[in-house]
């Protein structure tokens, strides 16, 4: 056996200290504010627009959560790639399946 011990470096060396308390609190407050908004939307009658508005709020919340709490902003390229891949493949799943439901009633001839 040689002197070289091949150590698996699974987790990237993370030299960045974790988020400050102030930063975390701010993130939390933003998220809580957005949650209040989602609730408000839930209790009002916006008709068909409601689902879009509430989903938009949820997306903003999701982005804040992943970028700040899950620390994606300090992630390396690979982490970003992974996150984008997840979204992209979910998009593919939706794209074709929902296309089916939207076009099924059209007949070609």
């Amino acid at each position: 056996m040689s002197d070289h011990v091949q150590k698996p470096i699974i987790f990237e060396e993370d030299h960045l200290p974790p988020a400050t308390i102030g930063g975390s609190t701010l993130t939390f407050l933003i998220l809580a504010g957005l949650a209040c908004m989602a609730t408000l939307i839930g209790f009002t009658d916006l008709g068909p627009a409601k689902v879009w508005v509430s989903l938009a709020v949820a997306c903003v919340q999701g982005i804040v959560l992943t970028v700040f709490f899950m620390d994606l902003r300090h992630g390396d390229k690979l982490t970003w790639l992974t996150a984008v891949a997840a979204l992209f493949w979910t998009f593919l799943l939706f794209l074709f399946t929902i296309t089916d439901y939207l076009t099924r009633q059209f007949f070609a001839f």
């Binding site: 839930g42 009658d45 689902v51 989903l55 709020v57 949820a58 999701g62 959560l65």
Partner: peptide, 23 residues
């Protein structure tokens, strides 16, 4: 844990807030 939270963030409007609620 954050991911579990993330799922809930989407379930909340899709399941609970899709209807009409009054205070």
């Amino acid at each position: 844990w954050h991911f579990v939270d993330l799922v809930w963030i989407f379930l909340f409007p899709l399941l609970y807030m899709a209807g009409i609620h009054s205070v």
